[in-house]
């Protein structure tokens, strides 16, 4: 490498670095701002055969629609075996004569969403809640009652992301 080439390349790269001093910070300040790409629920329309795009986080189970047909269990049993059918004798839903509902072990779930695609009764969805960390592994086991709680509305507002060629990608505060 010639010395002129060296100096020229050095100046170009230093100049590029200096320009970046005037850019906005790219970091998302978690958990003050949470930059979910989408806040929609992942759902599946069995009549059309297509899903509705959304974030594949923890499930939401509609117990008034679940018939206990076990199709979600069958879909999952070779993938991650996270879904178990749990008998709940105390429930009294007319459509669920067998009184069994799915429970999900999030220590195993891979969030592929094929259980939602398997449900023919609009009973299973996936919500944008993905922060599922627990101190105890057993707490990651969600019973049908826990799954049927509607997902908490995200309390922190979604950061407004700006994509700017000059100033970079940053959150508008």
């Amino acid at each position: 490498m010639k010395i002129t080439e060296f100096v020229k390349g050095f100046m170009i790269s230093v100049n590029t670095g200096i320009q970046h001093l005037f850019r906005k910070r790219m970091t998302t300040m978690y958990p003050e701002t949470q930059n979910y790409p989408t806040l929609d629920m992942y759902a599946y329309d069995p009549r059309k055969g297509i899903a509705v795009s959304g974030w594949r986080g923890r499930h939401y189970l509609d117990m008034t629609k679940c018939t206990g047909c076990q199709l979600c269990y069958i879909a999952c049993e070779n993938i991650s075996e996270a879904i178990e059918m749990v008998p709940l004798p105390e429930t009294n839903y007319p459509q669920n004569k067998k009184k069994i509902f799915p429970a999900v072990d999030y220590g195993r779930c891979v969030f592929c969403g094929f259980c939602v695609d398997a449900c023919p009764f609009y009973a299973l969805y996936m919500t944008p809640v993905a922060e599922l960390s627990e101190y105890d592994r057993n707490d990651l086991y969600y019973s049908p009652y826990e799954l049927s709680k509607p997902p908490a509305v995200n309390p922190t507002p979604r950061a407004k992301e700006k994509i700017d060629i000059k100033r970079g990608v940053y959150d508008e505060r």
Partner: peptide, 29 residues
């Protein structure tokens, strides 16, 4: 930036499981 754009459509960040026999799972949002 691209991961979040992809996650907008597919619902997952890296393991999309999005392409299935017969097409893709969802339309673009």
């Amino acid at each position: 930036l691209l991961i979040e754009t992809a996650a907008m459509m597919t619902g997952a960040r890296v393991t999309f499981s999005f392409i299935v026999p017969g097409g893709v799972r969802t339309d673009t949002p």
